[in-house]
Every structure is written in C-alpha cells, then in structure tokens.
Amino acid sequence: MVETKNSEPLIRVEGLRKTYTDDGVPVEALRGIDLIIYPGEFTAIVGPSGSGKTTFLNIISGLDRPTEGKIWIKGRLLEEMSDKELSDFRRDNLGFIFQAYNLIPVLTVEENVEYIMLLQRIPREERKRRVRQILKEVGLEGFEKRRPPQLSGGQQQRVAVARAMVSNPSLILADEPTANLDSETGGGLLDMMRELNKKTGMTFIFSTHDENVMRRARRLIILKDGRVAEDKQIG
C-alpha cells in the first residue's frame, strides 16, 4: 500500500460548489464537497449520470473554475493561479485520460505520446526513450507509426494512458476511461492502470458507471446530486 493518511494530501477540496449558469437556468452540479486525496491513491468516483462526476474532475484538475470553495493540489491553491499558470501546472503535474480517447488524429501514436514532452522541452533523445518504454508498458510496441483512427478503441485508450503517464505526473485523472470499451477490454485497461499505479506510485482518480471497473478501485467516492453520498476504502 502506497497510500497513507500520514503523508501530505495530494488534493484537498473544501466546500466545493459549482453552479452552471450559462444555459439560462442555473444548474447546481456540485453542492458542497469536502475531500482529501492522498498520493498513490487509486480512486473511483462513481454515481448516476448527472451526479457531477465530470464537473468534479474538471474542477480539481483546473480545467474549469469552481463557483465556491477551495482546492489545493500539491499545496498550491488553484484559484490563485492564472490561466497560463494553470496550463503550465497541468502540463507538469497532471495526466488526462478521456472517455472519447481524444487523441490528436493527425499525429501518429508516437507523436501523440511525445506531444506533452515537447511542451515540457524535454530533449529529443530522452523523449524517444520514454516513448519507447511507455508504449512497451501499455503493450503497443509496433504501433508507433499508426494514426489513432487506425487503432481499435482499446488500443486508442492505451495510447491515451501512455500519453497521460509519459511525463511522470503526480496525478492522473480519467473521466469514464472505459465507457467506450467493452467490459473485458475495460477491465484489462483498469488492471493495467492499477499495475502502473502500484509500480510507480502515481495517483489515479477515475470516474465510472461500470461495476466491473469499480471493483478494481481501492477507494470509492459515490456522488449523488452533487454531494458525496459515500466514501469508502476497499480491500
């Protein structure tokens, strides 16, 4: 077990609220969330559709701003960062896996994975080495020169995992990473993520509907109507 309540929190959320107002009628997506996430966690955010999972993940990763409440990641208060600082912070500390894979279709597998390291100005040799290594770990050796549309969903999502992990972020956020995959492929992907989590100590937070996926989490945070309905450790 990497996670310990004694270490410094990775994420601290206090009184988080989010109300969407842009469609005219205000929608209260999050209605007061307090949470602490520790380094090394492998945590699932679950809940029915519309319960606020995506909203929650977006806000704790700085993709969206909260209406109320405070979020600290690695001790830094998000609201104090400008958009540009947030952008750099994401680049250096966070990895993303999205439901719809969201690879860049005009880039090859290799280039998709390499992209973030280019933003970080990592030297070429180092980039190539890391790309090779991570693609091996996600089982995509030999697919380097393919473009995403030439891959299956499961393969694309493994590229996405590689892309999220290649820069060694402290935290990987995944919004329904398995929703577009069949149960078996989804389970396989989760097992792979769990392996990487154990091996590297990287923190994973992912949202899901899928029982099969939830089972593999170490901690379950259940959202209902924008509130934490249950928060439990597994295993």
Binding site: S61, K84, S87, R90, F96, A100, N102, I104, L119, R163
Partner: peptide, 14 residues
C-alpha cells in the same frame, strides 16, 4: 473545438 480543448487540457498554452 474538442481537439483544441484536449490540447489545452494537456497543458498547451493558448
């Protein structure tokens, strides 16, 4: 739009 969103999420500067 989606792609630009992804690039930004990954930390691409505006």
């Amino acid at each position: 739009t989606r792609e630009y969103g992804v690039l930004k999420a990954l930390g691409t500067r505006p």
